[in-house]
C-alpha cells in the first residue's frame, strides 16, 4: 500500500493513566505490522511527530473531567472519520467517576495542597456522553487481542468481533474452575463483559468487573448472590464502584443499594 493511501491513526489522551495507550505499544508481535499499515498522525506516548488532521481512526483514551477536555473532544470528533474509545475511563468515566457520587471539592481539598489551582468538572463522564462514538473497547486496561482485532477489522472495512456476553463464557471455554462455586469467592464475572480472557479467575481470583457490565447484566440477582455468599451490602456497593462505577448497570445498582442503607437492597 502506498504511503499516501495509508489510513491515518491518532491516539488521544483525556483523564486517564495511559495504560490503554501502552497496550498498543505492548503489541510487540504486531507493532511493526501496525506501523506498516497505518500512518501514525498523533500518538505522544510513541512519537513526537504530528501529522495534520483529519484522521481516519481516532483511538480515544480517558474520560471528560475538565471544561477544556469537554471542548477538545468536540474538535477531535470533527477531525475523525471513526472514533473508538478505549478503556474503562473513556467508556465509563473510569475510577475518577467516583466523584460523581461524592463531592469533588472535598476530594480536591484532601488530595491537593492548593485545590484553588484546579479547574475541574464536578463529574467524570465517558466520551460517549459528549460525542458520537463508533465503537468501544472495554477494560482496565483494554485487551491487546481486542485492540488488534479492532485495527484489523477497521483496515479491512468490516465490523470488529467484540463479544458483549459474560466473563463466564471465557472461563468455561478455557476450562477455568468457577471460583464462585468452588471457593465461594465473590466474583462479578456473571455480570461483567468478557474480553480479558477470564484473567483473574484463571489465577483463582474473583472478577472485579474491569470490563464493565455485560449486555444482559442482572444486577439485583448478582447482589442477592453476593449477599448470600456473605458479602456485606456496603461491600457490594464497593465492588460495583471501581473502574466502571459510572457504567449505567453498575451505577444504578450501587445507588439503589446505597440509598437503602446498610441493611438495604431487596427485602426478603
Amino acid at each position: 500500500m502506498a504511503a499516501a493511501t495509508k489510513p491515518k491513526l491518532a491516539v488521544w489522551k483525556f483523564a486517564s493513566c495511559d495504560g490503554c495507550q501502552l497496550t498498543l505499544l505492548n503489541c510487540e508481535d504486531e507493532l511493526l505490522a501496525i506501523a506498516d499499515a497505518v500512518t501514525i498522525a498523533y500518538f505522544p506516548e510513541a512519537t513526537r511527530a504530528v501529522v495534520e488532521g483529519p484522521c481516519d481512526l481516532s483511538l480515544v483514551e480517558g474520560s471528560i473531567s475538565t471544561p477544556e477536555d469537554a471542548e477538545r473532544i468536540q474538535h477531535i470528533r470533527e477531525q475523525s472519520t471513526l472514533l473508538v474509545t478505549i478503556g474503562a475511563c473513556a467508556t465509563a468515566g473510569g475510577i475518577q467517576a467516583l466523584r460523581n457520587v461524592a463531592d469533588v471539592a472535598e476530594y480536591a481539598s484532601i488530595v491537593y495542597a492548593h485545590p484553588e489551582y484546579l479547574s475541574t468538572l464536578a463529574t467524570s463522564t465517558p466520551i460517549r456522553t459528549h460525542v458520537f462514538v463508533d465503537a468501544e473497547l472495554r477494560g482496565c486496561p483494554i485487551d491487546k487481542g481486542q485492540l488488534v482485532e479492532l485495527l484489523a477489522a477497521t483496515l479491512a472495512g468490516r465490523a470488529p468481533r467484540i463479544p458483549t456476553y459474560s466473563v463466564c463464557v471465557q472461563c468455561k471455554a478455557r476450562g477455568v474452575t468457577c471460583v464462585a462455586v468452588a471457593h465461594s469467592t465473590p466474583c462479578l464475572g456473571p455480570v461483567t463483559q468478557a474480553g480479558c480472557g477470564a484473567l483473574c479467575p484463571s489465577v483463582a481470583r474473583g472478577c472485579y468487573g474491569c470490563f464493565g457490565p455485560q449486555d444482559s447484566a442482572n444486577m439485583t440477582g448478582m447482589t442477592e448472590r453476593l449477599v448470600a455468599a456473605g458479602v456485606p451490602r456496603a461491600d457490594v456497593v464497593r465492588l460495583y464502584r471501581t473502574f466502571n462505577a459510572h457504567a449505567p448497570a453498575f451505577r444504578t445498582e450501587s445507588e439503589r443499594l446505597a440509598a437503602s442503607g446498610p441493611q438495604g437492597g431487596r427485602q426478603p
Binding site: V191, Q214, N218, M222
Partner: peptide
C-alpha cells in the same frame, strides 16, 4: 429471570 444471571454456565457445562 429474577435469579438467572444470563451468564451461560448451565449450557457450557
Amino acid at each position: 429471570a429474577e435469579r438467572c444471571l444470563a451468564c451461560t454456565n448451565c449450557t457450557l457445562v
